[in-house]
Write a protein that binds this DNA or RNA. Structure first.
Length: 124
DNA sequence: CTTCTCACA
DNA sequence: TGTGAGTA
Protein backbone atom coordinates (compact mmCIF):
# COMPACT_ATOMS: atom_id res chain seq x y z
CA UNK A 1 0.00 0.00 0.00
CA UNK A 2 1.05 3.62 -0.47
CA UNK A 3 1.76 6.13 2.27
CA UNK A 4 -1.71 7.62 2.29
CA UNK A 5 -3.41 4.37 3.22
CA UNK A 6 -0.74 3.45 5.73
CA UNK A 7 -1.12 6.81 7.39
CA UNK A 8 -4.86 6.33 7.85
CA UNK A 9 -4.57 2.75 9.05
CA UNK A 10 -1.80 3.53 11.50
CA UNK A 11 -2.86 6.97 12.57
CA UNK A 12 0.69 8.17 11.98
CA UNK A 13 1.12 11.27 9.84
CA UNK A 14 2.74 10.92 6.46
CA UNK A 15 5.35 13.37 7.67
CA UNK A 16 6.37 11.07 10.52
CA UNK A 17 6.26 7.95 8.38
CA UNK A 18 8.74 9.55 6.01
CA UNK A 19 10.79 10.79 8.93
CA UNK A 20 11.08 7.26 10.34
CA UNK A 21 12.40 6.17 6.98
CA UNK A 22 14.89 9.03 7.03
CA UNK A 23 16.12 7.72 10.36
CA UNK A 24 16.55 4.25 8.93
CA UNK A 25 13.66 2.73 10.89
CA UNK A 26 11.61 1.96 7.83
CA UNK A 27 12.65 0.96 4.31
CA UNK A 28 9.62 0.70 2.05
CA UNK A 29 9.96 -0.38 -1.56
CA UNK A 30 9.72 2.21 -4.27
CA UNK A 31 7.68 1.86 -7.40
CA UNK A 32 6.90 3.38 -10.75
CA UNK A 33 6.74 7.08 -10.02
CA UNK A 34 9.03 6.80 -7.01
CA UNK A 35 6.06 6.22 -4.72
CA UNK A 36 6.74 4.40 -1.45
CA UNK A 37 5.12 0.97 -1.15
CA UNK A 38 4.66 -0.55 2.28
CA UNK A 39 4.45 -4.29 2.84
CA UNK A 40 2.67 -6.07 5.69
CA UNK A 41 6.02 -6.25 7.43
CA UNK A 42 6.38 -2.51 7.16
CA UNK A 43 2.95 -2.07 8.69
CA UNK A 44 3.91 -4.26 11.65
CA UNK A 45 7.23 -2.50 11.99
CA UNK A 46 5.57 0.89 12.10
CA UNK A 47 3.25 -0.35 14.82
CA UNK A 48 6.22 -1.50 16.87
CA UNK A 49 8.03 1.78 16.32
CA UNK A 50 4.99 3.56 17.72
CA UNK A 51 4.81 1.32 20.76
CA UNK A 52 8.48 1.75 21.54
CA UNK A 53 8.36 5.51 21.02
CA UNK A 54 5.37 5.79 23.33
CA UNK A 55 7.40 3.80 25.84
CA UNK A 56 9.76 6.73 25.90
CA UNK A 57 12.51 5.36 23.69
CA UNK A 58 14.34 7.58 21.23
CA UNK A 59 14.33 6.75 17.54
CA UNK A 60 18.02 6.05 17.81
CA UNK A 61 17.44 3.37 20.43
CA UNK A 62 14.48 1.97 18.55
CA UNK A 63 16.71 1.71 15.52
CA UNK A 64 19.02 -0.63 17.38
CA UNK A 65 16.10 -2.68 18.66
CA UNK A 66 14.12 -3.28 15.48
CA UNK A 67 16.54 -5.78 13.92
CA UNK A 68 15.73 -8.19 16.74
CA UNK A 69 12.01 -7.69 16.56
CA UNK A 70 11.50 -8.87 13.04
CA UNK A 71 9.28 -11.86 12.31
CA UNK A 72 12.31 -13.49 10.79
CA UNK A 73 13.69 -16.01 13.33
CA UNK A 74 17.02 -15.64 11.58
CA UNK A 75 17.64 -12.38 13.38
CA UNK A 76 17.24 -13.48 16.96
CA UNK A 77 20.84 -13.94 18.05
CA UNK A 78 21.77 -10.26 18.65
CA UNK A 79 18.88 -9.94 21.11
CA UNK A 80 21.33 -10.55 23.94
CA UNK A 81 22.84 -7.17 23.27
CA UNK A 82 19.39 -5.68 22.89
CA UNK A 83 18.33 -6.84 26.32
CA UNK A 84 21.22 -4.80 27.66
CA UNK A 85 20.14 -1.60 25.93
CA UNK A 86 16.57 -2.20 27.09
CA UNK A 87 17.77 -2.47 30.67
CA UNK A 88 19.64 0.79 30.24
CA UNK A 89 16.51 2.50 28.96
CA UNK A 90 14.54 1.09 31.85
CA UNK A 91 17.08 2.59 34.24
CA UNK A 92 16.88 5.96 32.51
CA UNK A 93 13.12 5.92 32.86
CA UNK A 94 13.38 5.15 36.55
CA UNK A 95 15.84 8.00 36.99
CA UNK A 96 13.40 10.35 35.32
CA UNK A 97 10.56 9.08 37.46
CA UNK A 98 12.61 9.86 40.53
CA UNK A 99 13.24 13.44 39.39
CA UNK A 100 9.59 13.92 38.48
CA UNK A 101 8.47 12.56 41.84
CA UNK A 102 10.60 15.15 43.58
CA UNK A 103 9.14 17.92 41.42
CA UNK A 104 5.71 16.55 42.19
CA UNK A 105 6.37 16.68 45.92
CA UNK A 106 7.68 20.25 45.71
CA UNK A 107 4.65 21.48 43.81
CA UNK A 108 2.35 19.75 46.27
CA UNK A 109 3.97 21.49 49.21
CA UNK A 110 3.54 24.82 47.48
CA UNK A 111 -0.07 24.03 46.73
CA UNK A 112 -0.68 23.11 50.36
CA UNK A 113 0.90 26.41 51.34
CA UNK A 114 -1.60 28.24 49.17
CA UNK A 115 -4.50 26.63 50.99
CA UNK A 116 -3.42 28.17 54.29
CA UNK A 117 -2.41 31.45 52.67
CA UNK A 118 -5.21 32.35 50.20
CA UNK A 119 -3.69 35.77 49.58
CA UNK A 120 -1.13 34.47 47.12
CA UNK A 121 -3.75 33.12 44.77
CA UNK A 122 -2.62 33.42 41.19
CA UNK A 123 -4.57 36.03 39.26
CA UNK A 124 -5.60 35.67 35.69
C1' DC B 1 -6.41 13.24 -6.83
C1' DT B 2 -2.02 11.28 -4.53
C1' DT B 3 2.80 11.34 -3.66
C1' DC B 4 7.50 13.50 -3.70
C1' DT B 5 11.10 16.76 -2.06
C1' DC B 6 12.37 20.86 0.09
C1' DA B 7 11.97 24.65 3.06
C1' DC B 8 10.22 27.76 6.87
C1' DA B 9 6.39 33.39 9.90
C1' DT C 1 6.08 18.05 13.30
C1' DG C 2 2.95 20.74 10.51
C1' DT C 3 2.21 22.88 6.13
C1' DG C 4 2.60 24.96 1.62
C1' DA C 5 4.90 25.11 -2.89
C1' DG C 6 5.74 23.17 -7.42
C1' DT C 7 6.17 18.48 -9.77
C1' DA C 8 5.51 14.03 -11.67
Amino acid sequence: MKIGKLSKLSGVSQRMIRYYEEQGLLSPARSDSNYRHYSNDDVCRLARIRILQEAGLTLKVIHSLLPCMTDDPLLFEPCALVIDTLLEEKQKLEDRIKVLSESHAILNSHLNGLRSEPRVVVTD
